[in-house]
């Protein structure tokens, strides 16, 4: 009986440690960023530009960079992902959709740095030629590449929720003479819209949290971007680039602000997806 207890306590301890890590990551950022918050410079940071020569360290340009790259990536990726998921689970015929499904699953295993590497030598020169000015490293290029990176997240989530639509509904629609496209629009999508939303939010989380693509492709300029063909820096890339600097400088302190924003955004998105998911689960359970 004593070993029973002991093992149970050990397992509980492991779980507590795992929770502690999550809390510590936030705790460390808040504690180390505390002088900033009490100093009153914290909220100013979110609205000011980045002008080190005038000792103004605002992260507004990085916030704009993050939002525009992630938003644009999602806008590129969403329709294609929806098309792929529909092909995989509803519209496709023959062996090709299954192959596509496999490719998409494999894509989750491709290292981000390899995407970035290929992007620099394939995509960036293409964009440079097409735009005709600048280095080709811009919001647009980064968003395109990021769209490829986050597509599997959406496709897999979409096609999973498409396939979990009860078979009885599909047979009913078949028996009433629905074509595959009608089945998709009238039965499958209305039944799985929660899955669609969750997939989009998860993909948005991946896009906001990605460091390497933006770092390698977006050009990392600290000026406020004026168009999608301008270079920009994301919050994540900003952290990566500034860490090398002096630990006590105000420049460094901005990182805590970046970190806190990213952490809070992630947490909100996770809570949101859990809400949406929980509601749908409860619903299914009740109607079953």
């Amino acid at each position: 009986m004593r070993t029973e207890r002991l093992v149970q306590h050990l397992l509980g301890l492991a779980a507590a440690c795992s929770v502690a890590v999550t809390v510590l990551i936030f705790g460390f950022m808040v504690i180390l960023g505390l002088p900033l918050i009490t100093g009153g410079a914290f909220f100013q940071m979110f609205t000011s530009p980045w002008l080190p020569s005038q000792a103004v360290y605002g992260i507004a340009p990085m916030m704009v960079g993050t939002v525009s790259i992630a938003g644009l990536a999602l806008a590129f990726s969403f329709p294609v992902s929806l098309g792929c998921a529909a092909l995989i689970s509803v519209l496709g015929t023959g062996p090709l959709p299954a192959l596509l499904h496999r490719l998409v699953r494999f894509m989750t295993g491709i290292p981000t740095v390899v995407y970035g590497f290929a992007g620099i030598f394939v995509l960036v020169p293409m964009i440079r030629e097409w735009v005709g000015r600048g280095s080709g490293m811009c919001i647009f290029s980064a968003a395109l590449l990021l769209a490829v990176l986050v597509a599997p997240t959406m496709i897999l989530f979409f096609s999973d929720s498409f396939s979990s639509v009860p078979k009885a509904y599909l047979t009913a629609a078949d028996a009433l003479g629905a074509t595959p496209v009608q089945k998709l629009f009238h039965v499958v999508i209305p039944c799985s819209w929660r899955g669609l939303i969750t997939g989009v939010v998860l993909a948005l989380g991946r896009a906001l949290g990605d460091t390497l693509i933006a770092l390698m492709i977006a050009g990392n300029a600290t000026a406020m971007p004026g168009s999608v063909l301008d270079p920009a820096r994301t919050l994540t890339a900003h952290i990566a680039l500034v860490v090398a600097a002096d630990f006590d400088s105000l420049e460094f302190r901005t990182l805590f602000a970046c970190g806190i924003i990213l952490y809070v955004c992630t947490t909100l998105m996770v809570i949101f997806t859990r809400r949406v998911g929980a509601v749908s689960e409860r619903r299914l359970w009740r109607s079953a």
Partner: peptide, 15 residues
């Protein structure tokens, strides 16, 4: 399938 309707053993209303 519109001309030849089918009703199943277990009622299957759509959601």
């Amino acid at each position: 399938r519109r001309k030849v309707g089918l009703v199943f053993q277990i009622p299957n209303p759509l959601p």
